[in-house]
């Protein structure tokens, strides 16, 4: 469901679009876990084209973070959407992985 905009060594940047919600969260989770399984250790998810994430979508981010951290990797989330950045803050995700507000 995401456009892969770049793969370098063990890093990848993903550009999902639309919504990350209960209707597609399982698909997104599978995509991320397959990347980690393939050896990717640094995942950057650019949410500039995402306008909504619900509780099921949020769970995917914490699963991805936990899976990467267990392998010594890390997750970074980028968004220019103040509401989404605040949502990640309310869920205290920014205490555990990087949530970057882009211009």
């Amino acid at each position: 469901m995401s456009e892969h905009v770049g793969i370098q060594d063990k890093n990848i940047e993903l550009n999902p679009d639309g919504k990350i919600t209960a209707a597609n969260a399982d698909e997104f989770r599978q995509e991320l876990l397959e990347l980690v399984e393939s050896g990717i250790l640094q995942i950057t998810i650019n949410l500039n084209n995402v306008d909504m994430i619900d509780s099921k979508g949020l769970a995917v981010f914490i699963v991805c973070h936990k899976t990467l951290a267990a392998k010594g990797g890390s997750l970074t989330v980028i968004s220019d959407n103040e509401e989404l950045c605040n949502l990640f803050h309310l869920m205290r995700f920014d205490e555990h992985f990087a949530v970057v507000k882009s211009e």
Binding site: S55, A59, V63, K66, R92, E95, H96
Partner: peptide, 12 residues
């Protein structure tokens, strides 16, 4: 709980 998969809906 931040590391749990469920329970966020009601909190939100």
């Amino acid at each position: 709980e931040v590391f749990e998969e469920s329970g966020r809906g009601l909190a939100l």
